[in-house]
Design a protein around this nucleic acid. Sequence first.
DNA 1: TCACGCCCATCCAAAAACCGCATCGGTTCA
DNA 2: TGAACCGATGCGGTTTTTGGATGGGCGTGA
Lengths: 314, 314
Amino acid sequence: MTGPSFWSQFELRQLRCFVAAAEELHFGRAAARMNMTQPPLSRQIQLLEHVLGVRLLDRTSRAVKLTPAGRVFLLEARRILRLTESAALATRRIASGEAGTITLGFTAASGYSFLPRLLLQRASHAPNIDVALKEMVSSEQVESLVTGRIDVGLLRPPIVRSEFTTLKVAEEHLVAALPMGDPRLSEATLTLKHFHRQPLIMYAAEGARYFHDMLAGLFEAEGVAPVTIQSLAQIHSMLALVRAGIGAALVPEAAMSLHFDDVQFRPVETNPPAPVELYAAWRSDNDNPALSAFLDLLRTEPDPETLDALAAEE
Amino acid sequence: MTGPSFWSQFELRQLRCFVAAAEELHFGRAAARMNMTQPPLSRQIQLLEHVLGVRLLDRTSRAVKLTPAGRVFLLEARRILRLTESAALATRRIASGEAGTITLGFTAASGYSFLPRLLLQRASHAPNIDVALKEMVSSEQVESLVTGRIDVGLLRPPIVRSEFTTLKVAEEHLVAALPMGDPRLSEATLTLKHFHRQPLIMYAAEGARYFHDMLAGLFEAEGVAPVTIQSLAQIHSMLALVRAGIGAALVPEAAMSLHFDDVQFRPVETNPPAPVELYAAWRSDNDNPALSAFLDLLRTEPDPETLDALAAEE
DNA sequence: TCACGCCCATCCAAAAACCGCATCGGTTCA
DNA sequence: TGAACCGATGCGGTTTTTGGATGGGCGTGA
């Protein structure tokens, strides 16, 4: 005895019945198309009409016709049903990882060479994965990974958090950036000794800790003592100072793509070789379904075509 | 023993439950908002997830969170629900006659004066009624009314079909259209006698039967015999011939708004007075819900503002 | 004119789905 | 460690839906 329980809203099943009936203009055939018999289809349409308070189909025992209101509701119903299908599809694609968004943190330096290559690979191998980019230094990335503000970080070691999984994605050598006219430009290859008591643009301990510690360690090990003129965190700022003739700098190869006028580069040999490393890191429990597709991208060796495309942009 | 009966499609009820849960992030509160208890809400969401094959909410006993797929499905679900409401609203508006489309047939002559006034009235009194216009002569309108190609016709009598309802909507007097230099222009008012043995541009019997028969009757009654130079169905073509000095024409007042250069008008008195009549006609069984609102428009005396607006356009 | 066929509406019993209650299992917090 | 909280699950009762049978209106053809 709860009363007639009037819903103020219709159900999709009723829309499907109505669309079938409106298209067939015949309840029997419409019911067959819906895999049911005619009486329940009649009821569903009556229910729909009752909820709307509007007669949608004019039916005599001889013919079924759409009312004017039924004509516009047919258009709306079709649109709603189409939307439900595309919604289900889109959601399944997100869940399967075919499509989605990865929020990616990256250091300025990785943006010079590794990131463009990665994005080109994505365009050809996983076009439905959107990548939202956020530039930040390595320490910020670690924090953002913990809070979930980014899914993956491209950062410098060491990465100590146990809840992260990491992958080395690039390795490059140090090169010396020298101002035009620097006598060391006559050498094809330099060693650390060439920097003893020479002016050097150094990395700031905060904001570029990895490079700072690495260089400090290398100089210490070889007993070389450069003259630090200035400490900076941003590689492009360092190169600007080099161009001004203030001193030399040691930068990763990728920085060569910055094309500063009047700045020349020379390889630097260290003993043992000390490549600069770039890691990808992500929370092991990250549930973003697009993650695995994105990680596949990271693990893939660059295509020849991708490299060609990059070279063409130079 | 029909098996577990898997639908391949979800229902709106499930969407509403999901949206509530996704917004509250709490099944108990979401259930309260849906006016039910928590267990059935849980089931609806499980059902939805099962149909989609996608987990939408990550729920521990302590917290409920949207998965990435759930985030996009929430947007889609909200859009679908919004669409269902607007669809219901629009359909109800159509059915109530507040909104809708009336297909209107009209004769060329009625387009000169009555139709603009009608459309202005519509703009201020029934802005949600669209009027689709189709120009056609009276006989075509009768046929189109029968086949349903138009809802209402604006046409000339006589209208004999018994399945039509009619309404006289305008009445105007005949005026004489005379070329510049015509001696009759010296008179302020003309009578039919002024056309005896004078060149006259006449209406064609087919395409303008009403005017043709009416004028023929008037001349006959008064024993006046004009010289018919040419018969036409279109009033603007007749005026073009008048301007060319070929002869005079008798046209409804409304034609004065055509502004032909070198064509002057004079009132014409007949005995008894013979006003030109314009009728609206529609099928008595027309089920277009917008019809009654449109007929109200026809029955309404023109507003002062409407007439002002028309005058301003002159 | 009348009998037949077509077709949607209605009735009814059976089946399915849904709901609410009670309860379970896992987590958090004091 | 115990209490509180929260979502999942089992279960019986109720509502809703379904399909077959039937009714009744309306063309159609003999």
